[in-house]
Design a protein around this nucleic acid. Structure first.
Length: 574
RNA sequence: CGGGAUGUGGCUCAGUUUGGCUAGAGCGCUGCGUUCGGGACGCAGAGGCCGGAGGUUCAAAUCCUCUCAUCCCGACCA
């Protein structure tokens, strides 16, 4: 394609409402335009990148034996009521009524539809397993869409669903998808990590997330430097050395701590370390009052609390509730004499005595507290967030905590939907049995954004070749010169003829403008042709990633180009 | 949903505090000329009822009320 006839609106300045780099660059480089909050137009250049990703996903899904289909975006409420999610999915589900006043929603995911589809059609174990997928626009009415394509309300997703006769079969399906995902992200030339994940409200027994590694990621990964353990910190278990027997402290005593309510304030005031304090965090767990205790220097992982109770909602208690439960303002809660429905303590609090904690009384704390002697602890459990100082829960090795962007998630669902929706088949013995399901998602549009988060510099996007909308950009620096124009056109046609996706910048712009735009839009290979180089019988080339420049002879150009391309791709590990 | 902020040509913003002439700048866009290897320069243009509604006033981009939209932080999130 020739740029003089391309709709590629590049911008010198980023719009004020873009915050993260991928969002800014996608707008500046003319990939997307916002229609409304969390909803974007995909412009021709951006759409090509999305299509590239989708095609690789498609090829690997097909290779893994999955079958592509397309299900409706508009879904009847009946199905969601059947699975129970009409009530539980929340307001992320965009609901509306048709002219007959019937309830509908826009599909945020398709477990209900696919289960409904198959339960009517698949009756025999002979027909299983089956794995179906689609690549389609999804809509989730996110409470807070942000960061451009990173968290949109409307986005493109590949979602696959597997149905098996039994657990063992489901494990095989799961593994096949996991392996396909690894191949997909390898082929996309992204730096990624597959991590153990919390399965969240989709349910099911276990799951993995695929994270594109990038500083700006919203998720944190606990990854072992010594073994292959990696988990989302939401899920990562903390290894506990075991309780220690220490002598109980003398009886607890109140100390006056006027106006000190944070751990830091109290620790400074008493001239002790925060690890000698116990934080008492009051939570609402499915409407019940729960206290969670962690050491002063630790952070509570609310998801662990949620999983401990198998609860659907865990939220921090409101200040009024804290006052009602502890008879003191926020900042002075403690386990001694606290009356709530459950008091959970982090396991490591078993290794220590003589804690400092809130007195449940304004401006007072307690010292010399023994949890076993002075408080009623219902259970000790792994409650806190893992830190970089913790050992690897598998091998005891050193942990790193890199940031990642979740671009894929595989779930083993088990019987959750098949039971709720009666998706049964007849097994070998002629008996009804529920199908064992798995579901597998990839955020196609999010991958493009994540790719840019991972690959950019001060000048713009640096597309990995597999995602790049075009492989090579030819810059005609002398658009008015017939000789240069003819040669540029010739190179362009040569590349196209050899199957290289080329873009020709034949606009009547000054060289500086073309160089800037070329770097901004991030096509991996730049071929620069001007009067000077033409006179010398060469074209200048630049590797967008490394910035390395070279010259290729115009005579026998294609052979030289092939060699150079191999070098550029090698830089991407391809 | 709680907290904060912003809405002025396509983009970035000034002007609003303290109401007052035909509402400005840079970038971008159109035309002409000079330029031509890292976002050139000159001249001449086009383009805005200042998010919307109502109100106060002799007079509103500016003050008041309501409303809509967008962004940020938090809660939330296959």
């Amino acid at each position: 394609m020739r740029l003089s006839r391309y709709y590629l609106p590049t911008l010198k300045e980023a719009p004020a409402d873009a915050e993260v780099i991928s969002h800014k660059l996608m707008i500046r480089a003319g990939l997307i335009r916002r229609l409304t909050s969390g909803v974007y137009n995909y412009l021709p250049f951006g759409w090509r990148a999305i299509a590239k990703v989708a095609q690789i996903v498609r090829e690997e899904m097909d290779r893994a034996g999955a079958l592509e289909l397309t299900m409706p975006m508009v879904q009847p409420a009946d199905l969601w009521k059947e699975s129970g999610r009409w009530e539980h999915y929340g307001r992320e589900l965009l609901r509306f009524k048709d002219r007959h006043d019937r309830d509908f929603c826009l599909g945020p995911t398709h477990e209900e539809v696919i289960t409904d589809l198959l339960r009517g059609e698949l009756r025999s174990y002979r027909q299983l397993p089956v794995n179906l997928y689609q690549i389609q626009t999804k809509f989730r009415d996110e409470v807070r869409p942000r960061f451009g394509l990173m968290r949109g309300r409307e986005f493109i997703m590949k979602d696959a669903y597997s149905f098996d006769r039994d657990d063992a079969g489901a494990d095989i399906s799961y593994k096949a998808m996991y392996d396909a995902y690894v191949r997909i992200f390898e082929r996309l030339a992204l730096k990624f990590r597959a991590v153990e994940a919390d399965s969240g409200s989709i349910g099911g027994s276990f799951s993995h997330e695929f994270m594109v590694l990038a500083q700006t990621g919203e998720d944190t990964i606990a990854a072992c430097a010594d073994c292959n353990y990696a988990a989302n910190v939401e899920r990562a278990e903390v290894k506990f050395a075991g309780p220690k027997n220490s002598t109980p402290p003398p009886a607890w005593a109140e100390v006056h701590t006027p106006g000190r309510h944070t751990v830091e304030e109290v620790a400074n005031f008493l001239k002790i370390g925060p690890e000698q304090l116990v934080k008492t965090i009051l939570l609402n767990v499915d409407g019940k009052a729960v206290a969670a205790l962690v050491r002063g220097d630790r952070e509570l992982n609310e998801i662990k609390v949620k999983n401990y109770f198998n609860a659907s909602v865990v939220e921090l208690a409101a200040p009024e509730q804290v006052v009602a439960w502890t008879k003191a303002p926020v900042g002075f809660a403690g386990p001694v004499g606290l009356e709530v429905s459950a008091v959970l303590a982090d396991q490591e609090l078993q290794a220590g005595e003589g804690w400092v904690c809130g007195a449940n009384k304004k401006d007072f704390h307690l010292v010399n507290v023994s949890l076993s002697r002075d408080a009623k602890i219902d259970a000790y459990a792994d409650l806190r967030a893992i830190t970089a100082q913790d050992p690897c829960p598998r091998c005891g090795g050193r942990l790193e905590l890199p940031k990642g962007i979740e671009v894929g998630h595989v779930f083993k669902l088990g019987l959750k939907y098949s039971k709720a929706m009666n998706a049964n088949f007849l097994d070998e013995n002629g008996k009804d049995a529920p199908m064992v399901m798995g579901c597998y998602g990839i955020g196609v549009t999010r991958i493009v954004a994540a790719c840019i988060e991972q690959n950019h510099d001060a000048d713009g996007i640096i597309f990995p070749p597999p995602i790049a909308p075009y492989q090579a950009l030819i810059l005609n620096l002398d658009a008015k010169s017939e000789a240069v124009g003819a040669k540029a056109q010739e190179l362009y046609e040569t590349l196209l003829g050899e199957g290289v996706e080329a873009l020709l910048d034949d606009r009547e712009e000054r060289p500086g403008v073309k160089f800037k735009d070329a770097d901004l839009i991030g096509i991996p290979m730049q071929v620069v042709l001007g009067a000077k180089t033409l006179a010398r019988g060469v074209a200048e080339v630049k590797d967008r990633r490394s910035g390395e420049k070279g010259e290729l002879p115009l005579d026998g150009f294609m052979a030289a180009f092939d060699a150079w391309r191999a070098k550029v791709y090698a830089g991407w590990g391809m």
